[in-house]
Write a protein that binds this DNA or RNA. Structure first.
Length: 431
RNA sequence: GUGGGUGUAGCUCAACUGGUUAGAGUACUGGACUGUGGAUCCGGGGGUUGGGGGUUCGAGUCCCCUCACUCACCCCA
């Protein structure tokens, strides 16, 4: 049988996840879900595939558009893999007018971007997204940020920063500086890089994109001088965006969010085009990995699918980046095998006895593995050792004739014979 | 998509300026130990040195192409 072999390979930028990693991921996802639900949010899921017009109909992602995985479906319709949850959520809201507002949901699923893979950047990755739909008040922003804060705190993060800004402020500043609206998004994308490339770098970038230095200079000087909302108020008094953030900061104080961990950042702009109000990003100083979470208000996006517009605000946690950060900061939950007992096979003559022991333990709720082959015991013990299974039960001829089982504690290396009648009590103890 | 770096066993890495049959640790497997795992000792399998072409008496090593990974740019979670 000389068959042509297929070369096993994973698609670039995507990953298999083995049991140990899965258990750690499930643990962290469990914590995140718990926080979400404790704050009154419920889960939804949406399909991986959306019609292309839904994904990109009105150029919702701006420059990101080209990173969408696109293809034809079986009927030749243009379709693509979801790029984030904000757009699918908007579609869902538009299709379900019966929903009670405000609608609060979370969504934890993979998304796909045809990006060049790098440290902390993948083509298939998971987002944990919380949104509030149908609420105009800054209380919604405060709630979303409070939840984010709770998630990071619960996972053990000590040093992280929630950066906050408002697209409305940026708009006012552009207008004030005499930058025409057509350059708005170019300005945002350039500003966003200030921390890495410096103010001069931003100016250069803007010049490249057609904004001359004598015009961008005014804006950049302003941003450099105005470190606080109060500073900005001198420049653009009675600005709606400033008032919103002032209110938001008050609410965050009421939520008792540590004042040191959130701050106004006039340079924060975010790349996606659909944001209309407050925007936010969570960053850590170590590891150097970009933002761990990002979001904002998108009051006009749902209106793309409907006659009327519906306000909405949300934030997304990048799950894999979060896991990398947890690992680097030594905050990763320890791997604990869920399997508690291995029932070994002595030989084929004693299989039925071992099966009934395994069945009994399983019925009692003890995660029990049964060795599904007939090999020598040393191999089965090695298997248990490798899997970090804490107990091995052997049911051989001696045990069967005495109506007992032998239980070995792998950690202490001690073992005992136990009557079948005592097995239930033992099982409850080690469960 | 553009530019740099790196590709040797499942994994981590060796192999002087090109020079016999490409090694080691680990992992896997068998035995010492026929009712018991982590230690020790002995044995075994596993490689078209990412792939293709070229230079040479001779290429893992030099040159070209290609692919993959990776870093930076771009952009973001």
């Amino acid at each position: 049988m000389d068959k042509e072999k297929v070369k096993p390979q994973v698609v670039k930028g995507m990953h298999d996840r083995m049991p140990e990693e899965m258990k750690r991921r499930e643990k962290v996802i469990g914590i995140i879900k718990e926080v979400f639900e404790r704050h009154g949010f419920l889960p939804i899921e949406t399909p991986a595939i959306e019609y292309l017009e839904v994904l990109s109909g009105k150029n919702k992602y701006g420059e990101e558009e080209k990173l969408i995985y696109r293809f034809k479906d079986r009927k030749g319709r243009d379709a693509g893999l979801r790029f984030d949850f904000t757009v699918p959520l908007s579609r869902v809201i538009a299709m379900h007018p019966e929903l009670t507002m405000p609608f609060k949901r979370y969504q934890i699923q993979p998304v796909w971007r045809g990006d060049a893979p790098q440290y902390g950047r993948f083509r298939e990755f998971h987002q944990c997204d919380v949104d509030i739909v149908g609420a105009q008040s800054m209380l919604a922003e405060a709630e979303v940020l409070n939840i984010t804060y709770e998630v990071f705190k619960t996972l053990g993060f000590k040093e992280f920063k929630i950066k906050i800004n408002n697209r409305k402020i940026l708009q006012s500043l552009c207008k004030y500086s005499g930058i025409s609206p057509e350059f708005e998004f170019a300005v945002y994308r350039a500003m966003d890089k200030q921390e890495r490339i410096g103010v001069d770098g931003v100016a250069e970038k803007l010049e490249l994109n057609g904004v001359p230095q004598n015009i961008s200079g005014k804006l950049l000087n302003l941003l450099e001088d105005c470190k606080t909302l109060k500073d900005l108020e001198q420049v653009i008094p009675n600005d709606e965006g400033i008032q919103e953030l002032t209110l938001l900061f008050d609410y965050l104080k009421d939520f008792n969010v540590n004042r040191k961990l959130f701050s106004f950042d006039p340079w924060l702009a975010r790349g996606l085009d659909y944001y209309t109000g407050p925007i936010f990003e969570v960053v850590v100083s170590r590891p150097k990995i970009g933002s761990l979470a990002g979001g904002g208000r998108f009051d006009d996006l749902i209106g793309v699918f409907l006659e009327k517009s519906i306000p909405a605000v949300g934030i997304t946690i990048g799950f894999e980046r979060m896991m990398i950060a947890l690992k680097e900061l030594d905050l990763m939950p320890k791997y604990k095998p869920s399997i508690r007992v291995l029932v070994a096979q002595f030989d084929e003559a004693h299989t039925s006895a071992s099966i009934s022991v395994a069945k009994k333990l399983r019925d009692l709720g003890v995660p029990t593995d049964i060795y599904t082959d007939f090999v020598k015991l040393s191999k089965q013990f090695k298997y248990a050792d490798k899997q970090k299974i804490p107990y091995v039960i052997v049911v051989g001829p001696d045990e069967v004739s005495a109506n007992k089982v032998t239980i070995k504690n792998m950690r202490t290396r001690s073992q005992q014979k136990m009557g079948m009648d005592k097995l239930t009590t033992w099982a409850q103890k080690i469960k």
